[in-house]
Simulated scan of single mutants.
Amino acid sequence: MIRRALPFLLLCLTVLLAPASAQAAKSQKKAIWGPIEIDGESQFPVYKDLGVGTYQMLLEWDKVGVLEPLDAKDPEDASYEWSDEIDTAISEGSNNGIKVALSITGRPDWASASDFKDFVTAAAKRYKAVRTWAIGDGKVSPAKDYPRMLDDAYAALKAASKSNKVIGGNGNTRLELSNGKQARMDYFGTDPTARKAPTKSTLNALKRKAGDHKLWLGPVSLPTSEGGSFRLTMAAQANWIKTAFRLVKSDSDVAALSYRKLRDELGAPFTGLMDSDGEKKPSYNAYKQG
């Protein structure tokens, strides 16, 4: 009887003693903003450890197109100065199984709202690996121009690839075109940052604003120091993130929850998942487990 039980007991012991995976399972619900490198060292293994599905960063039109291009739709136009950092992020993301999403912001002095579609066309050709695009954060256009620019960007990105997804809204409250229709988008971007984590009630209110579109939440910033509109303890910051991910990860109406910063920065409110020396806060593990 004892002999028969031994193989079973050994199997149980093996399972119990097997090391748990230190790395979180990747989730497309998890998005993050943060540095590509610190002191020459890629941070994408850190994002991989956190289970990040999407890394977000800016594509600044005013920096890429300082001079007016001869052919604005051509990414090879000599006037364009594309960011090497974006190329690095795409490469590092690919190596670590993480997608890159670009948020287009800024407008060159020479440009008008009607020029935006051509720039987006060039950007889609330049960054073919990118499939998620956020349009505007209050700097790309005056409020009156935003609906047209969002709709033009949607048309340009879908023409480049039907797989492209467009995040609209992003703090812009005016989304109606001159013909009375709403500008097209795939996701409604909105930031739920507040002292308290979102609840089912507040999430449902955001869904009503989003209409038929899925929500792209964030980028969330939760300060653990003075300088922001509020301050949380490190434990409260972690609990906020844990509560939010518990709410959204099984909700099919939420595409992703995006967090603003990986590390604290001296001279700015401390909103990171790590302190400025790279030590993990409780929120690091809360994000990782989310």
Rank of each mutant, 00 (worst) to 15 (best):
D145V: 01
I241T: 02
S276C: 00
A286Q: 12
G228M: 01
G51D: 14
A286M: 09
G136T: 00
S225V: 00
M274P: 13
N95P: 02
T233K: 07
A205S: 07
S103N: 14
S79M: 09
R131S: 12
E76T: 11
S225L: 01
K261A: 02
K48W: 08
I167K: 09
K200A: 06
L16T: 10
V100W: 11
I2E: 10
V254C: 07
M149V: 03
A160K: 02
S94M: 12
L175I: 10
S114W: 02
R4W: 13
W82H: 02
L102Y: 04
R126E: 14
D87P: 15
Y287I: 07
T243R: 07
F116A: 06
V140P: 02
Y259V: 06
W133P: 11
G138A: 04
S283E: 01
R263L: 11
I241Q: 07
R184W: 11
R195Y: 15
G97T: 04
D191Q: 01
L10T: 07
K99F: 09
R263C: 09
Y47K: 01
S178K: 14
W110S: 12
I38A: 13
I38P: 07
I38R: 15
D186C: 01
W61S: 05
D62M: 00
G106A: 06
L150V: 07
P192T: 01
S79C: 08
L215Q: 10
N204F: 03
S201Y: 08
E60S: 14
A286C: 12
L102P: 13
N179D: 15
V52Y: 11
E41M: 07
G228C: 02
K117P: 02
E279W: 02
F116P: 00
T233V: 02
K29R: 09
R174E: 08
W216V: 12
S276G: 01
K207P: 08
S42C: 06
N239R: 06
K26H: 10
P219I: 00
K249D: 15
V120D: 08
P269I: 00
A160N: 03
P45L: 02
S258A: 08
I2K: 04
K200E: 14
I38K: 12
N285Y: 15
A235D: 15
